[in-house]
Structures are given as structure tokens and as C-alpha cells.
Write a protein that binds this DNA or RNA. Sequence first.
DNA 1: TGGGGCGCAGCGCG
DNA 2: GCGCGCTGCGCCCC
Length: 224
Amino acid sequence: MMSVIEQLNEIGNKPIETKNLKNYRRIVAEHLDVETAILFDKRLSYEIYKGLDDAVEYYEENSLKVKVFGKWHPVPRKMATYCDEGITYTFSGLTMPTRNWFPLLSQLRDIVTKLTGFDYNFVLVNRYENGNQHIGEHRDGEKEIDPSSPIVSLSFGQHRDFVFRHSNSKARPDLTPIKMELPNGSILVMNPPTNQFWLHSLPIRKKALHPRINLTFRKIFRSE
DNA sequence: TGGGGCGCAGCGCG
DNA sequence: GCGCGCTGCGCCCC
């Protein structure tokens, strides 16, 4: 019985390409280019899920407040960040403490690097306890993310719906929202310039009863 | 079989 | 990028 680390090493040591993965799908629209596929089988995904659940240290709940239309709200999910030295992370105007990669996380990062051909120096971990926990539509940190790099999302646990909406969809009703499901063990690659033009969200789904852990790998500009 | 009720998704708004 | 209130729709139930 191989450990998770060994199984991931084996995956990382073989040549891998996103387009050769199971259920590979590429979606292209105006200013949007995203790819989805199954990266890990069910068994390994569950082991990664457990490994993450054991190791990830989330921010204190009361430190995660977001100001929307003048009112402060606790965010409806758990969050954590891991990154290289010298990277800072700002959430809702506050510079948050970050942690250094641990082995499982850096292995996953290395696989994502190998798949996409880009380096990532930062990962945001979001944990959604059930379908009542969610994230509203947004772009990922516009100022600090290198816009020439993809943003890569890995999903573990409860499958959830995921929606893209063009930021100018009022003026362009022809650009209808793009909806997809993110299953356990899946990868989603948001290629440039998707994040510049499209908002994305993880909507409430009352029927989703179980937790989902999501990793979003990014390349952040180093602060001087 | 169909009408009513309920729960959920989607949207506008602050 | 939050919750709330409203609406419309699909599904379940008898």
C-alpha cells in the first residue's frame, strides 16, 4: 500500500498533460479559456482530502470578516494560505499571516506546475463545510496576481457547481453564464485572460451535505 | 391526474 | 464578495 506521498511522486514522475486526463474538457468563449478534467481517482482524492484536513491550519473565524456595502460579515467558509518566502496576502484590506508549504501541498503544486508549465508561489485553501457555505462572484486578487499565469483550482470532497459570469454581461447579454461541476479530484485551469474579464462563484447548493476542500494555485507578484 | 404547497435557485439591492 | 427579500419554477404528494 503506497502512501499518498508515494502515489503523488509516481504521478509527478511521469509525463502528464492536462488534455490527456480523464473527462478533459476545454471551454472557450470571448476572453475565457478554461480546462477541466479529473486529475486524481476517487481513492487517492479521499486520501489527499484527509491529508489536507489533518494538516491545513485555517485562519481564526473571527479574523475573517469581509466588508460589503458598508457592512461587515464573517466569510461563509474557512480559509488558509501557504506560499514561498516573501509573498504577502491581503484579504479585505488586511495583510494576513501566511505559512510555508508542507510536503503534501508542495507536491500538489509541483504536479500542477508540471501539468501547466507555470510556476506557482501561492495557494489559497478554502474549506466549504456543506452546500450552505459558498463564495460570491469575484475575480481573484487582481492587483497581486501575475495576469500572464493561469490560476489552477483543485477540488477534493463534495462536488459543487461553479459559475463564470462575464463582468460586463449587462451590456453583453449574449455572453451567458458558463456553469460547470467541480467533482472530487478535479482540476480547473483558468487560462489568461479569463480572470480579467469573467467573475466566478461557488453558489449555495442545499443538497450538498459534505465538505469540499479547494486549493487555488496562483503566481503572485513579490512585494518590494 | 392535476392543483397546491414547498423548497430551492436566481436575481436585484444595500 | 456578504445577506436579505422577492419571484418563479419544478417537483412531490395526495
